[in-house]
């Protein structure tokens, strides 16, 4: 629950409005363990605190990375911080992607927009133990090519022979010659065995909702689909109730849920 002061060691701008903060513990010696899918509460002193997913490799020591977009007061303030500035860090919090359950199975990773960030540690973990998994497929959609995150890294992943990547954009701009269309349409193309697959999805909730019928058409049951949800998290430990979704606290019970567990809650507008 206590905020530790960390130092901003680098800021990488991924797109015009999205950036990755590289943070190091101020004492430099502090070890930080987390599971893919978990998040930290990042505090810009004097401005406010927000939940941001960790997007670095769980096995890489040293810097801890968080990718976020300038959408509110706190993230705008984060975007104007400089190297050497201090940020408060609480965490890690929440549940993680089902990497153990996915062992021996095909893994379908579906990301939309900035939703790729919480999935990136899972991709690192899978690639670090590649032989433990079957086919691994990443479907990634963004608004335009200018909004693609981690472009160099995606190019590197594409050069591997053990990871299938399909990228799509909603609108073709500039010299884009890749796929145009929405992410749910890519699901039918994913070369996985639907009967032995685990699916991990993160993106806007509407996108996730429209992925579900496509996954059902492939014969993938709700119990093998995992989603990462976004709600108004404040305390991050299930006390304040701001992120409550029916009987679930997204900060404590999530953000990663089995779709089977939350399917009935996502269509209730009052929640």
């Amino acid at each position: 629950m206590v905020t530790d002061p960390w130092i901003l060691s680098n800021v990488e701008w991924e797109t015009a409005d999205t950036f990755t903060l590289c943070l190091q513990p101020r004492d430099g010696m502090h070890s930080f363990a987390f599971a893919p899918g978990q998040f930290n509460m990042l505090y810009v002193f004097g401005v406010g605190e927000v939940p941001i997913s960790i997007c670095s490799s769980p096995s890489a020591g040293g810097e801890v990375l968080h990718t976020t977009r300038k959408v509110g007061t706190v993230t705008r303030a984060m975007g104007s911080l400089g190297i050497g500035d201090c940020i408060g860090v609480r965490g890690p919090f929440g549940s993680s992607w089902p990497l153990d359950e996915a062992r021996g199975k095909d893994v379908l990773i579906v990301a939309g927009g900035i939703g790729l960030a919480p999935l990136r540690p899972a991709i690192y973990a899978i690639l670090n133990n590649r032989s433990d998994y079957g086919r691994v497929v990443l479907l990634y959609g963004t608004r335009t090519q200018e909004d693609l995150l981690y472009q160099e890294e995606i190019q590197q992943w594409r050069s591997r022979f053990d990871l299938d990547i399909y990228v799509t954009v909603d609108r073709a701009t500039g010299r884009w010659c890749g796929n145009v269309g929405v992410v749910p349409q890519l699901i039918q193309r994913a070369p996985i065995d639907p009967h032995k697959s685990i699916v991990m999805i993160c993106g806007p909730e509407i996108m996730m909702r429209y992925c579900m019928p496509e996954l059902k058409k492939r014969g993938i049951s709700d119990s093998r689909i995992y989603v990462s949800l976004e709600r108004n998290m404040k305390c991050a430990v299930g006390h304040c109730g701001h992120c409550q979704l029916g009987p679930e606290f997204v900060c404590k019970d999530g953000p990663v849920f089995s779709y089977e567990r939350v399917a009935g809650l996502l269509n209730i507008k009052e929640l």
Partner: peptide
Amino acid sequence: LQLLDLYGDEGGGG
């Protein structure tokens, strides 16, 4: 879905 501009400022994603 394309018209909704899902990934715009109001769009979430984790």
